[in-house]
């Protein structure tokens, strides 16, 4: 940038889009032009801005259907007001807390049920545990044996003390 430039590059750079769009006042435009004569960096910025505008080319003329205006005027005077505005998108309503608790409970029950089914299948597949295989089962078996022996002893005592019927 030249020392004699009356405005700084940052000011010019900020003005570049409006300058290229021809939306600055005549006095600003002439100040910018004077600056551009001395400053290649700002000239490049203007060129770049103009380059981008080359992508916006005029599209071909549009064909308007014959009789369009008369057709629209007829519809308008017949009371047609066009389409209603699109309804605003409805946000998904948040699930009430009770619903969420219920959903959680259902999920929990489902998981528990699944677990029980899996255990049952496993036990069925392995034939199930024998009572003798379990420590607690051993104690029970001994208790049953004792109970059976006790019953036999009592029966013997009972038969010894009771007189024979028919005697």
């Amino acid at each position: 940038m030249s020392i004699t430039s009356p405005i700084q590059c940052d000011v010019v750079l900020a003005l570049v889009p409006t300058f290229v769009d021809d939306e600055v006042t005549d006095s600003v435009a002439s100040t910018v032009r004077r600056h551009l004569m001395d400053c290649s960096a700002c000239r490049n910025a203007v060129q770049e801005e103009q380059t981008l505008r080359q992508w916006f080319v005029a599209a071909p003329e549009v064909e308007v259907p014959t009789g369009f205006a008369a057709h629209v005027a007829r519809r308008a005077f017949a009371g047609d007001v066009g389409l209603e505005p699109a309804p605003a998108p409805v946000a998904a309503a948040p699930e009430p807390p009770a619903g969420r608790v219920l959903a959680f409970s259902r999920a929990l029950v489902a998981v528990a049920a699944g677990g029980l089914v899996a255990i049952s299948l496993f036990l069925a597949g392995s034939g199930g545990p024998e009572v003798a295989d379990l420590d607690a089962g051993k104690g029970l078996q001994e208790a049953l044996l004792e109970l059976e022996q006790e019953n036999q002893r009592l029966e013997l005592e009972d038969s010894a003390s009771t007189p024979e019927e028919g005697r």
Binding site: V62, V81, G82
Partner: peptide, 15 residues
């Protein structure tokens, strides 16, 4: 769609 939108615009303007 272009025709529909333009027509709708004029009908809205009229109303």
């Amino acid at each position: 769609e272009v025709e529909d939108i333009v027509q709708d615009t004029f009908l809205k303007a009229f109303s």
